[in-house]
Design a protein around this nucleic acid. Structure first.
Lengths: 343, 343
DNA sequence: GAAACCTGAGCGTGATATGAA
DNA sequence: GTTCATATCACGCTCAGGTTT
């Protein structure tokens, strides 16, 4: 029965346990664990060894309680949206090297945006990064009185003064898609829209403007859509029943476009032979070889980087330029677009 | 200049602020906030009003630090796997009513399983629920010495004593799929497998066994696959080049099956006319109207419920039966299977 | 004696002030 | 003076125990 101080049964090892084992003070262990200045190489080594042996792990919660900073970024996202999950990957990549932790809070059927955000705030997140939030702008403004808030991919007009917005130039993206299709020779280009989803209004407007600039006002056609595959499939069925059909379709996003594609293929309509399809987002979905979707790429890593950067700048009290940060989209031509009538 | 105690500039309101404002002690505010016994209706109301006015929000981290329980369940999942994200939804649904919070930690390109788990432990999670973990079993066993660990959808043989396993009877699922196809009249049934992915070995075995029982040993055909759409597409291209082709394919999972489907459709091969396709998981993907995939359903809500229940039982010190918890799969017949040779 | 309220200690850290080589 | 180590308090909260009606 050695007198070595042991960690009681099922409890978590603490600084005190490490200190007892290494025969030093708690404060010194704290210094070593933080990698702070003020410990000799010898005791540093001894402390680290003791910590290793008993499986010590710093308690972030106690840490946060003590220091005023939590260095925690709260991220709200939708589990079912590839665009969101791709963004989350980018946020991890941007935040962790900058010394910030990421707290994830998902929006799910049993869990609304309100609940998701409450959980993040209760967790002491220093800033909120909200992916495509759909709550009213006033709610965002209210949140922003408590903590820096970054809205990603959701434009706010008028923008509440304290809410940062990072988004893609959705109208410009729609324009690029239309330009591409027109250059291929298309004239009857339909748009399956996103209804009230974030970004939908701008994409609709960009589509209309571009069609107008090409003198194609009479061919403007906006079908009600949405952000899921089913929404795209529904709109595609509407188009299938028509004669003549438009020769090209711009879908609200990649999921929607996937639904369109699949419905066409199933009906024996060749893509891009009989009809061209363009998506939006360039999520991992569209990059898959077998989908090979021409799409308007949002620069997801860049959006994530800007969102994280903005949040951190606010926290560091750096002067932050007013206004939104708008990222340019870029058309990625893949296999679902081609000249019309080659089917 | 009223003497009402205010919250200093940008700081977060605490119990003390609420107490000062309501003119009561901190402890009483704590009682009210927890809804505990020991406060009159009158002061309860007064305290809640004060809290509301200054926007007080309990600090879970401080709360956790004080009470020994964190009531936090740590969940590791893959952002890109619909099966995982569906499970996460189920975990939220099971955990929150039971009074547990969920901490999410994603596996991403920049963030391995090790890192994901470290973050959860540092956050004082009381138990770990790992979705399809791919780390060595010894690592899981080691983790289980520190905290209850539940492995979902990953079988461990031999199971480390302290690791709970919740999984679907994968072999049985594969059997159901084969039985279904044989009943439809198929004999040449190929399996695109999942390589070393969790569950893959059992599905492979179930497929082989079922084929054998139907006297179809000579038609056993296992193609190397994987868990992504691209893996499925690759295997499908192999099949396309063959003559004759198998009349049915059992894919490792829904993502893989989607890749198979798409490749066939693109090549003008009708499903289920010329070839039938069966998936595995029954994620939201397969339920989409335009995919309409016949698949082996894993009972995702049930898996989530069992995983959460097992973790909580361990935490509450309830006696936990030894061994894995195996959930029965259920074949869901949709539109991608039919009698052979009707194309 | 119960109901309502308060005091005080402590959870595991980090930071400051202070002391010893 | 410099380097290393320690004692002590505070963070926001919960809880056991004490005091008052």
């Amino acid at each position: 029965m050695p007198a070595t101080p042991e960690v009681p049964d099922g409890k978590r090892p603490t600084l005190a346990h490490v200190a007892a084992r290494a025969g030093v003070s708690v404060a010194l262990v704290s210094i070593v664990m933080r990698g702070a200045y003020g410990a000799s190489a010898a005791s540093r080594e001894r402390v680290l060894k003791a910590a290793e042996e008993i499986g010590y792990r710093p308690d972030t919660r106690a840490r946060v309680l003590r220091s005023n900073r939590s260095r925690l970024l709260g991220v709200q996202f939708g589990l079912r949206h590839p665009f969101h999950t791709d963004l989350v990957e980018g946020i991890y990549a941007a935040a962790e090297p900058a010394g910030y932790q990421v707290a994830l809070s998902a929006v799910a059927p049993t869990r609304g945006e309100r609940q998701a955000v409450e959980a993040l705030l209760a967790d002491r997140c220093e800033a909120l990064v909200l992916l495509g939030p759909e709550v009213p702008a006033t709610r965002l403004a209210h949140l922003a009185t408590q903590v820096p808030v970054v809205s990603v991919a959701r434009r706010l007009r008028p923008a509440p003064p304290a809410v940062d917005v990072v988004r893609t130039a959705d109208d410009e993206g729609a324009r690029q898609a239309v330009d591409h299709l027109v250059a291929l020779g298309h004239r009857t280009i339909a748009h399956i829209d996103g209804g009230r989803a974030p970004g939908a209004a701008d994409r609709r407007r960009g589509y209309r403007t571009a069609m107008h600039r090409h003198g194609l006002d009479e061919h403007v056609r906006v079908l009600p859509g949405g952000l899921t595959e089913d929404d795209g499939a529904r709109a595609a069925r509407t188009l299938l029943a028509e004669n003549p059909r438009p020769s090209a379709v711009l879908a609200f996003n990649d999921r929607c476009a996937t639904g369109v594609l699949d419905t066409f293929l199933r009906a024996g309509v060749t893509v891009p032979g009989e009809i061209s399809v363009v998506g939006f987002d360039d999520t991992s979905l569209s990059r898959l070889a077998h989908i090979d979707l021409t799409t308007v790429a949002q620069d997801i890593p860049r959006l994530a980087e800007l969102a994280v950067g903005r949040a951190i700048a606010r926290l560091d009290g750096e002067p932050v330029p007013e206004g939104e940060q708008v990222v340019a989209p870029r058309l990625v031509v893949r296999g679902t677009t081609g000249a019309p009538g080659t089917g």
